[in-house]
């Protein structure tokens, strides 16, 4: 199974780089879909079957469709590369440096001490039944908060996008 993991990880990395580096927004979206699918594979390998499915359905599916819609709505225009004289002097360089510092710091944090071997999981761990039990028995509040958040988001989108002068 480890070669599946390896390939998925590598593809995820490359896709992530592509998301950031692509000049055309549609390419970014497609790379992001690839990245998310690879992550879903890794989720499943990590005994999180339900989350992997959710990742594919919700993220790589619904959300990415949303992105594609917006991209096509606005016209897949390129970034204005010609504006070389960026208004933000040194933003790119400093951004890379900050990211690098954070990378080093997080890697040190992650690699500093050895972790124990993974625990033995019971059959059905991460499956729909187990997830549902955890969500509906132990963490109902999370479910309710998620519902509330999504509703607020929907209302917010409507408020933002709706043209106020439509009724006249």
């Amino acid at each position: 199974m480890s070669w599946v993991v390896l390939i998925a990880a590598l593809v995820a990395l490359v896709a992530a780089m592509a998301v950031v580096r692509a000049r055309i927004p549609v390419h970014s979206v497609l790379a992001l879909v690839l990245n998310l699918v690879c992550l879903a594979v890794l989720f499943i390998v990590l005994d999180a079957e339900f989350m992997g499915l959710m990742q594919v359905i919700v993220y790589a599916g619904a959300v990415m469709v949303l992105f594609l819609f917006v991209v096509s709505l606005l016209g897949a225009r390129k970034e204005a590369i010609e504006r070389e004289m960026s208004l933000l002097a040194g933003q790119e360089g400093m951004g890379v440096v900050a990211a690098g510092v954070l990378l080093v710091a997080l890697l040190m944090a992650v690699l500093r001490q050895p972790l124990p071997a993974p625990a033995q999981v019971y059959p059905g761990f991460g499956a729909v039944r187990a997830f549902g039990a955890a969500l509906f028995y132990d963490h109902v509040l999370v479910l309710q908060l998620a519902a509330l958040l999504l509703m607020v988001a929907v209302v917010g989108v409507v408020v933002l996008i709706a043209r106020r002068d439509q009724g006249r």
Partner: peptide, 8 residues
């Protein structure tokens, strides 16, 4: 990043 670095 600096804060994380500090704690690490």
């Amino acid at each position: 990043a600096l804060i994380v670095l500090y704690f690490v």
